[in-house]
Simulated assay, not measured.
Amino acid sequence: MSADDVREAANLLDGVITRTPVVESRALSQLAGARVVLKCENLQRAGSFKVRGAYTRLSRLTSEERERGVVAASAGNHAQGVALAAGMLGIDALVFMPVDAPLPKLSATRGYGAEVRQVGSSVDEALSAARVEAARSGRILIHPFDHADIVAGQGTIALEILEQVPDVGTILVPLGGGGLVAGIAAVLADAAPHVRVVGVQAAQAAAYPGSLDAGRPTAVGLSPTMADGIAIGTPGQVPFGIVAERGVEVRTVSEDLLSRGLLLVLERGKLMVEPAGAAGVAGLLAAAPGEFAGPIVPVLSGGNIDPLVLLRVVQHGLVAAGRYLQLRVRVQDRPGALAALVDTIAAAGANIVQVEHSRTDVSLSVSEVLVNLQVETKSAEHRTSVVERLRQDGFAVDVT
């Protein structure tokens, strides 16, 4: 695949997709030691980059194939992209999604006009069901990442980045099955080979490192991850070939870094992203200052997040950033004991947001009470100093 293939896809997408903006981030620039510019595909139609590849693939179907309809599988973003593209092109669409797919993604996919069936606990299981349906019904399978048209459509992001940030030095790309990073790498190999491309996977769903070591797509067991959009057990043959041939670097990031990245983009950039969409930012947070040549462009690949998941991820991010502390403290069950505990926390400069007493814990003596506290702190260092201050004042503290 070449940059010319991607330019042809860009012509197909002209007037269909949104040319998403880039936003400079002072906060990330200070952390990275280089200019950081966010590519905001979270503001794309249907909330992610996926509509680029979906529309490219569907628009190239023959009339006979369109009549047969299409079938797809997705955790949510590809589902919405296929549903939106199918609706624009007048094609009947059936989408398989995992049983625990986020409700907003389910309702949005149905809202775009697709039929949704829920099956399995992962994208890979949903994809197996979609393949069976394609064989049974004759529908055309629209793979989420393993097709040249899909890769070409996703690669159009790189063309926009080169126009918007012409001196770009590094692009950080969320990586699941590989369609997005492969499309970007294909463009840059021809148009700007000096630009460094780094794919970033969730450590708990990272199929590419082992596959690259093996020299072929290799299945990996998935652990639960908040980044459901990039939780893919096996790389696609088409994107894997491009990633391997172009020597794309792949890194992994922890759940803590994913949540911190999401929180930073939300709080400092005023941009809503899903955990998978924050993977590139998480990769930047994991790197040493100056490690990546600037300008650095993390791709915010999607912004479709369940509000309930957002609440949990934000809290996780606050804990990871040292700005939220949960404590279990034993105190004597006598007047003034709780006041002394509160005074110590106040003197340490922390803010109590929730207090809960328990006198029924089996580990307590008759004269003790257990106090569960949720406390706001200012940094990891401040969090440590609050705990130390409590222990210095004689409190038995467990950090939960």
Rank of each mutant, 00 (worst) to 15 (best):
S358F: 06
R312H: 14
G303L: 00
D306P: 00
G302T: 11
V299E: 09
R323P: 00
L308V: 12
V297R: 08
L285E: 06
L311H: 13
D343Y: 04
P275V: 02
L262K: 00
A279L: 01
G303N: 09
V314G: 03
A293T: 15
I345R: 00
T360I: 11
A347Y: 06
N304K: 07
L284T: 09
L364S: 10
N304E: 06
V309Y: 06
Q326Y: 08
F292A: 11
A350G: 06
L263P: 04
L262W: 10
S365M: 11
R268C: 07
G349R: 05
H316C: 01
T344Y: 01
V313F: 03
G290V: 00
M272L: 13
A286C: 04
G303E: 10
Q326S: 07
A276D: 09
D306W: 08
H316L: 04
L364A: 09
A320W: 04
L271E: 02
A348W: 03
G280Y: 02
R323I: 08
D333P: 03
S301T: 02
P335I: 15
R323E: 14
A347I: 09
E356C: 00
V297P: 01
A320H: 09
L264I: 14
Q332R: 15
L318Y: 10
V297L: 02
V297W: 07
L263V: 15
L308P: 00
I305H: 06
V342A: 12
V342N: 04
A346D: 15
L308W: 00
L285S: 08
